[in-house]
Simulated assay, not measured.
Amino acid sequence: MKGALCKRQGKLYPINGTTENVTFTIFNCRMQSKHLRRYCSAFGYGWDYPDSTFRDIPLCYPEVLLFRLLAMVVCSDGFRLSPVGLVCVSQTIRTFQPIDELKKGPFSLQAGVMEYRAVEEGIEVDVELTAASRADQPVWEGHVTLLSRDMKGITSKPPTAQGLLGRYESEEVKVVEIPVPWSTG
């Protein structure tokens, strides 16, 4: 962790002796209804939302479960960028089964680096987040693209928007583009 904080933003560091990307997995997770109720209450679903058997777990809830693993990935010694100043530039979420499948028994969570690439603004890294059912079948998947900005090459022009349909070429994909001003922190 200490070494990760000494890295400079926008620079890709080599990792000695390994070519593998960082991955963390937690097995035998169980859904905690108290935490799910707090999430639903905070995000406007209502305090009693998950108590009904006819209501699904919200689509973004697994991301909350995976946040700690994401933090472990970006702060590990094997992560090749500085965790300081990382900016989320794109995110996709995909479900393979109803998320309620996670309520049926122990499930696993995994977060891992997929690839690093140089872009005009600095270095981007793709991190894959997954939740799998007790039968080890994928239930939920998220891809997060983080940018480590090269502070020497910052210009005043905003970055160009990249389409997300290239990754998933299915006709069933729904893309929501949210315009955010360039000056937003």
Results as ranks from 00 to 15, higher is better:
Gln137Lys: 14
Lys174Trp: 11
Val74Phe: 01
Ser133Leu: 01
His143Ile: 13
Leu109Met: 14
Gly163His: 13
Ile15Phe: 10
Ala132Ile: 00
Gln32Ala: 12
Gln32Gly: 09
Thr19Ser: 15
Cys60Thr: 14
Ile123Arg: 08
Gly112Thr: 03
Leu70His: 07
Glu171Val: 01
Asp150Tyr: 04
Asp126Asn: 10
Asp126Lys: 14
Tyr45Met: 04
Glu172Ala: 12
Glu63Asn: 12
Ala135Pro: 00
Arg117Met: 02
Ile123Trp: 05
Lys152Asp: 15
Pro58Ile: 02
Cys40Glu: 05
Ile57Lys: 06
Asp126Leu: 13
Gly85Ala: 05
Pro106Phe: 02
Met72Ser: 12
Thr184Gly: 00
Thr95Ala: 04
Phe54Ile: 01
Asn21Lys: 14
Thr53Cys: 13
Pro62Lys: 01
Leu146Phe: 13
Gly122Arg: 03
Gln97His: 09
Asp77Asn: 12
His143Lys: 13
Glu141Leu: 11
Ser90Arg: 11
Cys60Ser: 13
Val64Gly: 08
Leu70Phe: 01
Ile123Met: 09
Glu169Lys: 15
Val84Arg: 13
Pro58Gly: 04
Thr95Gly: 06
Ala4Ile: 02
Val173Ile: 11
Ser76Asp: 10
Lys103Leu: 12
Glu121Gln: 15
Gly163Leu: 13
Leu81Trp: 03
Thr92Cys: 08
Leu165Asn: 15
Val64Trp: 02
Gln137Glu: 13
Tyr116Phe: 11
Glu172Tyr: 04
Asp150Ala: 06
Ala135Asp: 09
Ser41Gln: 11
Gln91Met: 10
Glu128Gly: 10
Ser52Glu: 02
Arg38Leu: 14
Gly185Met: 09
Arg8Met: 10
Ile26Asp: 14
Tyr116Thr: 03
Met114Gln: 14
Asp48Arg: 01
Asp150Cys: 10
Lys174Ser: 14
Ser52Arg: 09
Val74Ala: 06
Cys60Gly: 06
Met72Tyr: 00
Val73Arg: 05
Cys60Lys: 00
Leu165Cys: 12
Tyr168Ala: 04
Ile123Cys: 08
Gly163Trp: 06
Val180Asn: 02
Ser170Ala: 13
Val73Leu: 05
Asp136Ser: 14
Ser33Thr: 02
Ala111Cys: 15
Thr92Ala: 09
Pro50Gly: 05
Val87Lys: 06
Leu59Val: 12
Leu69Gly: 07
Thr19Ala: 15
Ala161Ile: 14
Lys2Gln: 15
Leu70Asp: 08
Phe24Gln: 06
Tyr49Ala: 05
Gly17Cys: 04
Pro50Gln: 04
Tyr49His: 13
Gly166Val: 07
Glu169Tyr: 05
Asp126Glu: 08
Ala4Lys: 07
Ile154Pro: 10
Thr25Met: 12
Phe79Gly: 07
Arg55Cys: 03
Glu120Val: 04
Val84Pro: 03
Leu69Trp: 01
Glu177Asp: 10
Ser41Ile: 00
Gly112Gln: 06
Ser148Asn: 06
Phe43Asn: 08
Asp56Tyr: 07
Ser133Val: 01
